[in-house]
């Protein structure tokens, strides 16, 4: 007896879900234009959100890459003895945060300079046999914030001519990422709210269009949950649909971007497509669906007294 009832109950539930989805899809079709408008808005919002994500994460990636490359060149005075130079090296090694200290001889410096000049090496011919480049240490530190501090400390050491690092570039990049993060965050919040509002509005229109049906459902004893589900599903489909479009466009665009970068701007450390794009897609789809469900709920609470 109870087993039969259980079976009946399960079968009924599956059928009820079919009904919910059927109703949601029918409603989407019925409000075709409005549905399309909501999907487009969600797509647009998530597209921009995704673009900012890609931008922020890649700039971050770039900044981190540059940070790790940042090293301080400590140029030594010309008249130092070997002992003095070793002494400076030891003192630099003892500074807090210093991870690596490499000694660069005058010859090595000249060699690197030549490499950097490439096919214009002939310019060096003017120097003759003299080597104007100083002895130096290349110093690496554990954290980018320490670069400045270490540079200052080494600059003041006895026997050191001066200490240099790519101060401006790194600082500007830091500021840029910071601002893009802030602007991106504001924009993302704003766009998420816009998407939420538009879905809520679409569902409100659906609820309004179907108020008669809802009224009848209430009179014949449908539960509130039963009345709400199709609208909730409709909202979630709108959100998911919009997210899917955004994901497809972003994935395609990132692929093209990556191709271009690999071909022309090899030095730019772009985040590899996988698994980055998969993570981002999952995130956007979840966010889109959640926005749909939330927008729907807002509308149901406000416009349907069930």
């Amino acid at each position: 007896m109870s087993a039969t009832r259980m079976e009946g109950h399960t079968a009924m539930k599956i059928r009820t879900w079919e009904y919910f989805i059927r109703e949601a899809v029918a409603s989407l079709r019925h409000n075709g234009l409005m549905s399309m408008a909501s999907v487009s808005t969600v797509a647009l919002s998530l597209l921009i959100l995704g673009m900012f994500l890609i931008m922020v994460l890649n700039l971050n990636n770039l900044a981190v890459a540059l940070e790790s490359q940042v090293q301080i060149s400590v140029y030594l005075q010309d008249n130092l003895s070997d002992r003095d130079m070793r002494e400076v090296g030891t003192r630099i090694t003892k500074l807090p945060g210093v991870t690596e200290v490499t000694f660069v001889t005058k010859d090595e410096a000249l060699e690197r300079f030549k490499e950097r000049l490439g096919d214009q090496q002939s310019l060096l011919a003017a120097l003759g046999d003299t080597n104007p480049l100083p002895y130096s240490f290349e110093v690496k530190v554990d954290k980018p914030e320490r670069v400045k501090q270490v540079a200052q400390a080494t600059g003041q050491m006895k026997g050191v001519e001066n200490a240099k690092f790519g101060e401006k570039v790194v600082e500007q990049l830091f500021t840029l990422t910071k601002w893009i993060r802030i602007v991106g965050l504001i924009l993302i919040v704003f766009l998420a709210m816009a998407a939420l509002f538009i879905i809520a509005n679409t569902i409100r229109i659906t609820v309004f269009a179907r108020r008669k049906e809802i009224g009848i459902m209430k009179y014949v004893g449908a539960t509130n949950a039963f009345i709400r589900w199709p609208f909730l599903i409709e909202g979630m489909i709108l959100g998911f649909g919009g997210a899917l479009i955004a994901v497809l466009l972003l994935t395609k665009a990132y692929g093209l971007l990556a191709e271009q970068v690999y071909a022309n701007l090899v030095f730019l450390p772009l985040i590899p497509q996988y698994p980055f794009l998969i993570h981002m897609s999952v995130l956007l789809l979840v966010v889109g669906t959640a926005i749909g469900a939330l927008g729907s709920t807002i509308s149901l609470n406000r416009f349907m007294k069930v």
Partner: peptide, 24 residues
Amino acid sequence: YRLLPNKTVYENVAFAMEVIEAPR
């Protein structure tokens, strides 16, 4: 009357049973 115009006579009546999840 309060019938649903987009549903047939049969569907209008069946609707009252569907929404309380009666067996098909």
